[in-house]
Amino acid sequence: MAEFDQPPLSHPVPPEPPRAGLARQLSGAAVLAALALACAAAPLMADGSAVHRLDADPVAAALLDGRGSLSFALLAAVLGGALGIGWALLAGLLGNLVGNRVERRVIGAAHRMAGWPLALLVPLAGGLMGKVWLLALVTAMTAAPAVAALAHAELSALLRAEFLTAARAAGLAEGEVLRRHLIPNLTRPLLAAGTLALPRVLAAESFASLLGLGLPPALGSWGASVGLAGRLGDPVAFAPPALLLALALWAACAIADGMAAGNRTP
């Protein structure tokens, strides 16, 4: 149908600008995927035998560490994203059922907590509680307020959208409006808000592990290796995990940033 709707030559339609942040998001995702693959394949590099991590060459050791760091970050990010999105949805629901004041209080708490140095809780939890899943839960909770604040902003912007009024004018019941219009338009912004948790939990876990209060040594972590190499003064052991950690952090930030930017209406 496109050829029928050609604009007049005097008013050419400018080519559609590429979505903001798409390139950043894609490159971040590619780098992170490559890192994850390399980490998954790391045991093959270490001669195939179950070598002790410290005996392997520094690059292989850093890749082996990445297994712990990345899988923990993924677990905590999924938890944190879900917590934050749940928080925002709960605030919206309370606002609908109880009143705007409750909604403002609930989301105001998220805004305040997003400014607190919650990352300090992670080494605290790592030092006091040995269990990995408890540590993951605490790490997730440190990322949740920022996710909740952004998700709630997206949610309330969408709830004011004119097309919802148009749908109500078309006689759709509230349930239908929710199913046909709200949920399809909400999925992407909420996912974008959820990805904010990934760089945060990765940084928080690396910080805690750097202090030696993070993941248990058996799991391995970039932060722990960087800290150990720093204490031993070994530059060859220091460089690979530090570089890989920087790369992973950049990739996670690029994904989160790109998704949020692509979602923002200019």
Binding site: E162, F163, T165, A166, H181, N185
Partner: peptide
């Protein structure tokens, strides 16, 4: 509506 473009669901 005053802003017709905003009164259409962008996902349909």
């Amino acid at each position: 509506f005053p802003d017709p473009a905003a009164s259409f669901d962008p996902a349909m």
